[in-house]
Amino acid sequence: MKTLKSILLFAAVAITFAFGIKTEGGYKIGDTIEDFSLKNIDDKMVSLSDYKEAKGFIIVFTCNMCPYSIANEDRIIALDKKYKKLGYPVIAINPNDPKAMPGDGFKEMKKRAEEKEFTFPYLFDDGQKVYPKFGATKTPHVFIVSKPKMTVEYIGAIDNSSRNSDNVTEKYVENAVDALLNGNKPAKTETRAIGCSIKIL
């Protein structure tokens, strides 16, 4: 009887634990993120801890094939150009499984990065293990993280007009990073934009 009880208890704990992880939905504002080690398009592994001088990061889940990602590529490059020197480099991560979306393979990532002359690392989430921790659901999906505690400061869109850069009236990511650089918290911490669902099998 005692054994049965402990088995049941164990099962209950195991179930709660399993569901707890599954339904968490990733990092929230204020959470501390775990570092990762992912392969960059230059075949070297990249971790956030490599960036000793950075004040934080603009982490962008993006990919080659999604038209919303493509429509935002120039804006992502502009963010890196503006903020890398101020201590907030862009780190791009492709979360898609190439088996589900062949155009998003590692080779294709290298090609796209070369074509567009990406100024930032473009990492491949091999095995699709990192994006669920963030709770990224689509591309593009931005997470701004501040050092030293690796705190999530902002989650969402680059600006308020993903489909047409000519119509942008509010630059969410720039405003958030500017606030952080001035020692303030971002006024808007969560925004949304249409994006392509992350492709997994």
Binding site: T137, K138, A157, Y172, T191, R192, A193, I194, G195, S197
Partner: peptide, 15 residues
């Protein structure tokens, strides 16, 4: 988008 995605449903991330 940020406004209408939330208005259509509070749980919609936009995907």
């Amino acid at each position: 988008e940020d406004f209408w995605i939330k208005a259509i449903d509070s749980t919609w991330t936009g995907a």
